[in-house]
Design a protein around this nucleic acid. Structure first.
Length: 684
DNA sequence: GTAGGGTTAG
């Protein structure tokens, strides 16, 4: 490029284009010409600072800045923005201090403070943010909408919605940026009804809403699972002819997914004219959130066919789908995949790995995934704490909880579910009550039915069933079937037959079709030799036409899932499997196994019942695992129902005679059988 | 000439 032939104006226009397109190479050639020029040009040099800032070279921008014989406020604010957008917000704040010392600077303007406040947000530097707030109030810069919005944002980041609200209300008039920020602020801090009030208050200005407003409002519908509002907004977007960009499109898919309308999510996705990794991930997430994990995994293959590359969120969705399926081996494969493509270091992926390994029964791998993380957030801690608890490792869970407090992390609603479960594993009644009544209260967390159910379980485990019943009577909450079944199951374990009978009657009044309750109460009466009661229950079941949901277990061997149902004869290796079961049963009988025929609910002769027990699906799956994996390898089995007492006893002994770890995920929890013991301590 | 709000995870 010939320097002399290009006018100053042309150079400026070219620079603007190069900055916009981030064409560093061409921009540099203009820089070369400016260096050769006989006179210094402030505006052109400011453009250069902007060029290097936007192209990811704040260091070079700084060199240009330092070499200037004369600077103004634009030079400074351009460099500040460079620092901010290249991950150096503290340098931006450092620079504003330097600028305020230099006398030849004009007064600070709104650009400088918008950037300074944004830097404070990024650093969560509330102290310095407050100083900026004071200055912009005094100088009147707060009336500039960019400044005001940066202020709003700063208060969101420091979780101070009240201050944000004051800033928002201090300036009259409609500003779509401020509205969008406020909606997202309310949704982000869980104040959904405030968000809804704000949005309905702004419905008259609907013609001023833009894309971002719709994305924010769709997020509100998703967070509040308000499908009706979602429909209205979707309809309004269509009627107003809002162009579908990829943000709005993904927002619609996500909204339908989170509201549980998977068909609409799928349709909205198919109709998108432009799809990117975000829209693909959104629709995969929609499937996964609604329990359609295999569909989500299938979509990943389809996405690959279209040449779309996954990102960290895609891996998180995939891993969570594996968690839903307890697909340990596939999860392992995605772990390797994420590592190779460089996404493993992302926190969302680390969190999803903890979740996947923990839900697939491999708590050791979950522990390692947690240990490998460079950065952790509350989700990471909650995942590992609840993971330990579900695996019966109460001590580890409480240790992690205390670690977390030491690191300054603030526990949440979910944290305390894990903590109370851990107290349950360890039988720590007083600790549990302390966490529920004092710790949670101090943090302002209102306990929910999950916490109360943990308390019931804890009291039951400690054998204080009367207290548990009292607790349920006098605690004001919407008790669900899980809680009632917890109490009933304890009545069986602790032989509280009268209470058990009362509880069962109560449950069956509320849930007359709950098979689990029939099984539990019938087992309980059998244990007490109350055969008249057992017969009554069977009659009741027959009268109400209640059929036991068939027990199904499955196991993954070399990437394939093998499904077993009771009395299943379809598997190609069934005769070997039955031989193996018989072999195992005679082995464990030698060390004291007595078949527990009360676990068979069918109306058959007692002699047949023992044979029947051998066909329970988890026994078949374990036998298949034993004959098809190398000796010493742990066996992972999933089951759709709660494990029965007989299988539980048998598997403990099987783990002893075969020297194998057997990990079973049943409908309630994990059982890790090792050397004749189970991690649930026979309480589930 | 410099500045502000957005989609996918748990």
């Amino acid at each position: 490029m010939q320097s002399s032939s290009i006018s100053r104006q042309t150079k400026l226009s070219l620079l603007k284009v190069f900055i916009e397109n981030k064409s560093l190479r061409f921009g540099k050639s203009i820089h070369a010409q400016l260096i050769k020029a006989p006179t210094f040009d402030l505006i052109q040099t400011n453009h250069l600072i902007n060029l290097y800032s936007k192209c990811g070279h704040p260091g070079v921008a700084r060199k240009v800045f330092d070499s200037m014989p004369e600077r103004n406020v634009v030079s400074g604010s351009a460099l500040m923005a460079g620092y901010l957008h290249n991950g150096m917000p503290s340098q931006a704040l450092h620079l504003i201090k330097e600028m305020s010392f230099e006398e030849n600077f004009e007064h600070m303007n709104e650009y400088v403070f918008a950037t300074a406040l944004a830097s404070c947000s990024e650093m969560r530097a509330l102290e310095q943010g407050l100083q900026c707030h004071a200055y912009v109030l005094k100088s009147g810069l707060v009336f500039h909408s960019h400044v005001r919005n940066a202020l709003l944002h700063m208060y969101f980041e420091s979780l101070s919605m009240e201050d944000a609200l004051r800033v928002y209300e201090s300036v009259p008039g409609f500003d779509v940026f401020a509205l969008n920020s406020m909606i997202n602020g309310f949704v982000g801090s869980g104040r959904l009804s405030d968000a809804i009030d704000l949005v309905s208050g702004m419905s008259k200005e609907v013609e001023l809403w833009d894309h971002v407003t719709y994305v924010a409002v769709l997020g509100l519908c998703a967070a509040s699972k308000d499908l009706r509002l979602g429909w209205q907004i979707h309809d309004q977007i269509l009627r107003r002819g809002i162009q579908f960009n990829v943000f709005v499109g993904s927002g619609i898919v996500d909204m339908y997914g989170k509201c549980g309308d998977i068909e609409s999510a799928r349709r909205a996705f198919v109709e998108l004219s432009v799809k990117n990794v975000v829209s693909w991930t959104a629709v995969m997430a929609a499937f996964a959130q609604n329990g359609l994990f295999e569909e989500a995994l299938k979509l990943f293959l389809e996405m690959g066919i279209y040449g779309v590359q996954p990102n960290e969120f895609t891996y998180a969705v995939l891993l969570n789908s594996c968690a839903g399926l307890s697909a340990l081996k596939i999860g392992d494969a995605f772990n390797a995949h994420a590592e190779k493509s460089g996404y493993k270091a992302h926190m969302v992926v680390g969190n999803a790995l903890i979740n996947m390994y923990s839900k697939s029964g491999s708590i050791e791998d979950a522990r390692n995934a947690f240990g490998d993380m460079r950065q952790r957030d509350i989700i990471s801690w909650n995942s590992i704490i609840t993971g330990y608890s579900h695996h019966g490792l109460g001590g580890e869970a409480l240790e992690a909880f205390h670690d977390m407090l030491t690191k300054g992390e603030v526990p949440t609603y979910v944290t305390f579910v894990g903590v109370l479960l851990a107290c349950g594993n360890l039988g720590l009644v007083d600790d549990g009550l302390y966490y529920l009544k004092i710790f949670m209260k101090d943090l302002g967390i209102q306990p929910g039915v999950e916490h109360y159910t943990c308390m019931v379980r804890l009291l039951c485990r400690a054998g204080q069933l009367d207290k548990a019943e009292n607790f349920m009577t006098y605690t004001c909450t919407e008790w669900d079937i899980v809680a009632w079944r917890t109490l009933l199951s304890a009545c069986q374990v602790h032989k509280y037959y009268n209470l058990g009978k009362r509880v069962a009657e109560h449950i069956l009044q509320l849930y007359p079709d709950d098979v689990g309750t029939y099984i539990l109460v019938s087992n309980m009466h059998a244990k007490a030799n109350r055969w008249d009661e057992v017969v009554k229950i069977r009659k009741l079941m027959r009268g109400r036409d209640i059929k036991k949901e068939p027990g199904v277990s499955w196991i993954q061997v070399r990437g394939e899932t093998h499904v077993f149902a009771s009395e299943d004869k379809k598997h190609p290796f069934m005769s070997q499997i039955h031989d193996k079961v018989s072999e195992l049963l005679s082995q464990i009988k030698l060390i004291g196994y007595v078949p527990n025929i009360d676990c068979v609910l069918h109306d058959i002769e007692d002699e047949q019942k023992e044979e029947y027990l051998g066909y329970h699906s988890e026994k078949l799956a374990i036998a298949f695992g034993l004959i098809s994996t190398p000796s010493g390898a742990p066996i992972h089995v999933m089951k759709n129902l709660r494990m029965c007492d007989d299988c539980h006893t048998a598997v403990k002994l099987i783990s002893l005679v075969t020297s194998r770890k057997v990990i079973i995920r049943d409908a309630n929890r994990f059982h890790c059988f090792d050397s004749g013991l189970c991690s649930c301590d026979d309480y589930w």
